[in-house]
Design a protein around this nucleic acid. Structure first.
Lengths: 202, 202
DNA sequence: GTCTATACAAAGATAGAC
DNA sequence: GTCTATCTTTGTATAGAC
């Protein structure tokens, strides 16, 4: 599915979007100035309002993209009838870590922005999708005593929390950039093993 | 250590600080307007600058308080020579959950603000404190093959991530306020068990 | 110490030339 | 489509009366 027009240099519109992605995810909506975005794009401030009506409209567009990115990783895996529970966990963990290594600011960005604007998620039907998923069904079979949400939150926490807390551990000087990458690589193997062990508890 | 003056109504200075705590932790520095704080305190805007020199100074004061609160929970427990590793985990998990139930916005607040201002943590000597702790020593003895940081990040993730991701799960309509409280109560018991099981893996 | 009114600065949006 | 210059709004800080 290649683009029809594939210019060497991105279009102005795309330059703005790319700059907006970077600045918004790094600093958050409120701390971002439209001037930052224009500068990052190497363009004039007026062009932002020419292509997108306002800061808010531009933000909403980026936000939708980012939420899609964050949930898209797992939604189709959840309903794969062909895989076992353990295989699903392996795939979700591995895919998430790969994606987040490419987008380390993504989780904190989405989590912070949702705080002030809870309505933003309503449109996505992810909630129903999770509740009715094959994954949740398999979970209930394996461990009837455990609330599926406990397991899901734990699994995602194992994967996402390192990215969210990275700045803290780095400034505490207990973690370098390299050792973080190494750690996340190890987690691809460790987390699924841990989750298996957890399901046997009690 | 009771205060000498304990007036029925808080002093103006304390009213401002209390309002600032609330608004800053809910919305973050950039999204907070000094007018919000004044209004929340039921006071005039000019008083903020009378008692604290600027928005930034007021923020720094609150931020120091909040970081103290976040780390204070565990620092003394880490070096308790009288407790076993398992007991330390139980205590840290339990204390953290209790404290965070009272301050649910705290983690996301600190994590977001640190992102833009990494230097803020340098002053705290928490890094060294962790590395040299009795807790880490016990961890290394129990499971020489496992990086202590893996364990610490996992443990904190199990406890903190639910608070950070709560707004998401709530807007996905898979979690109510009541069931969240119930879930965290269960986690006081579950997380230590899980951590024990994880230490046996591999 | 507390308030009202206002100055000043920063940031978003737009007009109009090219 | 892109730019410079400018208007407008919003938010922080201060002056000065009480």
């Amino acid at each position: 599915m290649a683009k029809i027009k594939e210019n060497k240099q991105a279009s102005t519109e795309e330059k703005i979007k790319e700059a907006a992605r970077k600045v918004f995810t790094q600093k958050g909506y409120a701390a971002t100035r439209t001037r930052d975005i224009a500068e990052e794009a190497g363009l004039n401030l007026a062009l932002l309002n020419y292509y997108f009506r306002s800061k808010e409209k531009l933000f909403e567009m980026i936000m939708k993209e980012k939420m899609q990115q964050l949930f898209g990783v797992m939604t189709h895996l959840l309903n794969d009838k062909a895989t076992t529970l353990d295989q699903k966990v392996e795939q979700i963990v591995s895919n998430y870590i790969d994606m987040l290594m490419q987008n380390p600011d993504l989780p904190l960005f989405v989590l912070s922005e949702i705080r002030n604007n809870t309505g933003m998620f309503r449109q996505l039907q992810v909630g129903k999708l999770i509740r009715n998923s094959h994954f949740v069904k398999q979970l209930k079979e394996r461990q009837p005593g455990l609330q599926p949400l406990h397991f899901i939150v734990s699994m995602l926490g194992m994967v996402v929390f390192p990215f969210v807390s990275k700045p803290v551990f780095q400034s505490l000087e207990v973690l370098s950039e390299d050792s973080f990458a190494e750690m996340m690589k190890q987690r691809k193997v460790l987390v699924p093993k841990w989750m298996k062990a957890m399901l046997k508890v009690k």
